[in-house]
Amino acid sequence: MLSTLARASAKPSSPLTQSLRPSFVRTAVPKSTRIAAFHATQRQQILPPLPQTIEGTANDPTPVPTPEPVHGSYHWSFERIVSAGLIPLTIAPFAAGSLNPVTDSILCALLVIHSHIGFESCIVDYFPVKRIPLARKVAMWALRIGTLTLGVALYSFETNDVGITEAVTRIWHA
């Protein structure tokens, strides 16, 4: 009766019919074919897997770094404090026109730290040590040198020029 019902209501190949049938009547579609049906698009992978190397024995647990608040929670909180500190310093020039030299320098310092942390997380995300160790090292050192250079440049700009908020205001209304 069940099979009659299934035959009348659905196509014989539909998943419903398949599940209503007793297991010995189900069509023997190979598993690979059933999975392949879901993959209608071209197979595109961001990064194909490298040749696999097994370090240690086959069943070693994943190495877990020792918990270190300086690299963990303190670092996380520091990032957020810097980001939150940028909020008033970003809104103030819109309200007041520009910032005084001291506040402007604080804004510069926070921007340098915020940018450095941002670029650092991009490098960590896109240059995995396991895949491209040399590029990772080069990128990190380039970032460190770049951030220091930017610090020097902004110090020079703050001391010799009008400060970034005033400069942006003037250029914006040029």
Partner: peptide, 21 residues
């Protein structure tokens, strides 16, 4: 040989597809 089999097996693991999916 066990390592070789494991390495070959690990290549069969699924890889994240491209973002466009």
């Amino acid at each position: 040989e066990g390592h070789e089999i494991l390495a070959k097996q690990r290549l069969q693991r699924p890889v994240s597809p491209h973002l466009t999916i």
